[in-house]
Write a protein that binds this DNA or RNA. Structure first.
Length: 406
DNA sequence: TCTGGGGTCCTAGGACCC
DNA sequence: TCTGGGGTCCTAGGACCC
């Protein structure tokens, strides 16, 4: 049985993924711009999704409003996020990695954990660093995407090593080298230590990993409590027992939209709610899932963000049933606080697989979703697959659909 | 400068049950 | 009449990540 320190884990992490894809999509335009920002347009309500390394030198960071980014880097070109191209490229990278490693777990659209434990024989005792370079070259050759790779005996070590390898590098922390590696780092370099915790730590004079190790576990427990204290003590030593799990199920599906202009009238807000429900419900069914919990999120014009959730005894999947619950939640939220709406979102959680047997007795009498609702939803999905989604939007959305090519 | 969209995980309090 | 404790589920909110 392999102990935890025998594990061979890699994190394959794409370098400024959205920028790379935008350049591949438009080689003569965005592809030629060194100062490139991918994200919302500055006249809309956009933020930076990703910036080229050249633009980052001016202080441009992701999640920054594009207006501010352009002030810092006036020469930059802003292009929209090529969403579809990004998802299909992500799938292509996953497909390549699946041929190179027995266990691959996508961690986000542009990060993939690989567990190569037990492949030493297969690769003729190839050192982990050589495996990483081979994988890096294959991904570039087959998808044109440049990645950095971190490696070590634990996921969190691989993750931090990949960050230090960027761009286009490889960094492997050897077994037993974890402590020395951790001593290179600031506390804010550790995944899970964000701005808030960094500030709390700094208040107590803790900035580097060294600082935290020097002060000792007892103080970390005293300051941060039992649970967070233990978590911190583990993290500053690079301890992480989580596994690379290729089949980890998805836990929630959501869709949200910030409007170009705040929406004031109830009919307008409900129409947007329906649009979101249709989107989220169809991806629910596409993944052959049903949901027990429906959440509606609202952001008012003053940026106050609120949400309301409802959990049903039985999971549902149809547009009609989900919309019925969501509209009820929206009404509650709007009654509590009635302001023009900046953002609206719908989330589904408590997900179970579609083939899980239902509790029939509860369902047939007076349930919120009937067999007819489910059949209608399936028919709609089939038609959508054959004739394109636009052909079968609910009538209320069709009313306001702009005409194409009159 | 004026704040995106997709997620995961944690916490705290209340309801409810045993 | 007053008193428990533990476990689980649900909701709201927040931190964090890419």
């Amino acid at each position: 049985m392999a102990g935890p320190d025998a594990r061979r884990i890699l994190l394959v992490d794409c370098d400024s993924f959205y920028v790379q894809i935008a350049r591949l999509e438009d080689p003569l335009g965005a592809g030629k711009e060194p100062l490139l920002i991918v994200g919302g347009s500055p006249d809309g309500r956009g933020v930076v999704t990703s910036a080229s390394y050249e633009a980052r030198r001016f202080g441009v960071r992701s999640a920054m409003p594009t207006g501010e980014a352009l002030r810092l880097c006036p020469g930059a070109v802003v292009v929209p996020v090529p969403r579809d191209a990004c998802s299909s490229k992500s799938r292509a990278i996953l497909a390549v990695l699946d041929t190179l490693s027995p266990r691959v777990q996508p961690a986000s659209i542009d990060e993939f954990y690989l567990d190569l434990t037990g492949t030493e024989r297969l690769f003729r005792a190839e050192p982990l660093e050589a495996s990483a370079r081979r994988i890096q070259a294959r991904v570039l050759a087959e998808t044109s995407v440049q990645v950095s790779i971190g490696g070590g005996t634990r996921r969190v070590i691989a993750k931090m090593a990949a960050n230090r390898a960027k761009p286009a590098g490889v960094r492997i922390v050897p077994p037993g080298g974890e402590a020395a590696f951790m001593r290179e780092l600031l506390l804010s370099d550790i995944p899970g230590i964000g701005p808030t915790l960094t500030a709390e730590l700094a208040k107590r004079g803790l900035v580097s990993v060294e600082d935290a190790l020097r002060v000792g576990d007892e103080w970390l427990y005293r300051w941060f409590g039992e649970d967070r204290g233990r978590w911190l003590c583990d993290r500053v030593r690079g301890v992480d027992t989580s596994r690379v799990d290729p089949h980890e199920p998805c836990k929630s599906i959501s869709s949200e939209n910030t409007f170009l202009r705040d929406i004031d009238d109830d009919a307008g807000v409900e129409k947007e709610l329906l649009r979101l429900v249709v989107s989220v419900a169809s991806s629910l069914r596409q993944q052959e899932l049903r949901a027990r919990t429906i959440t509606v999120k609202i952001r008012d014009d003053d940026f106050t963000t609120r949400q309301s959730a409802h959990t049903l005894p039985d999971a549902i999947e149809s547009d009609r049933a989900i919309y019925t619950v969501a509209r009820g939640l929206l009404c509650e939220l709007r009654e509590k606080r009635r302001r023009p709406v900046r953002l609206l979102g719908v989330g589904l959680s408590g997900l179970i697989e579609s083939d899980t047997p239902r509790q029939l007795a509860l369902f047939e009498e007076g349930g919120i979703e009937s067999e007819r609702d489910r059949v209608l939803a399936r028919i709609k999905d089939d038609l959508g697959a054959r004739f394109g989604r636009d052909g079968i939007l609910p009538a209320r959305l069709l009313e306001s659909r702009p005409r194409e090519n009159p």
